[in-house]
Every structure is written in C-alpha cells, then in structure tokens.
C-alpha cells in the first residue's frame, strides 16, 4: 500500500502495479500449490507436513519463475 502518486514517467508497468502483483503472484502460488500439496498428502497418506511443505516450495518457485517472465521480460 505504499504507492505514491508522485511518479511521472515510467514504462508501461507502473511500480505500484508491479509491486502489488509480485506479492499477489507469490501468495497465489503458495496458496494454490500448498493446498494441492496438502490434498495430495491427505490422499496418499504421507506424513503430516510433507505434502504442504513440498507444495509451498513448488508454488513459490513457480511464482518466482512467473514473475521473472511476466514483469521483467
């Protein structure tokens, strides 16, 4: 929420939009893959925590990959 109206000339991605969507993408990735990992762990009967940990790592990695593709390309 630290967006200020004082920037005049920037490229098409405004800084506030970029900063907002970085956090959004990360949160989305971690939440959705953490949930899928938890679900997989419940179904496969893995020890508690393994599924959600792996899922969250995977989601964070995917989200960072996506951010690098989307925002800095």
């Amino acid at each position: 929420m630290a967006d200020n109206p004082h920037r005049k000339s920037s490229d098409e991605h405004s800084s506030e939009g970029a900063a907002g969507s970085v956090v959004g993408y990360l949160l989305a990735g971690i939440v959705v893959w953490g949930f899928l990992g938890w679900l997989a762990g419940e179904i496969l009967g893995l020890p508690t925590g393994i599924g959600i940990a792996v899922g969250m790592m995977l989601g964070a990695a995917g989200a960072i990959y996506l951010i690098m593709k989307r925002l800095s390309a």
Partner: peptide, 23 residues
C-alpha cells in the same frame, strides 16, 4: 505465458488463474 516450456504450464496456470480472477 508465451515462451515457456510446456510442462511449466501445469505449474503456472493455477497461479495465474488465482491471481487474475480471484486475487
């Protein structure tokens, strides 16, 4: 996202969906 090897789409499409349509 263009220019991504296809197996990555399994990883990325849920993230994009959650970001663009829910978040």
């Amino acid at each position: 996202i263009p220019g991504v090897p296809w197996p990555m789409h399994f990883l990325l499409i849920p993230i994009e969906f959650l970001q663009n349509f829910i978040n």
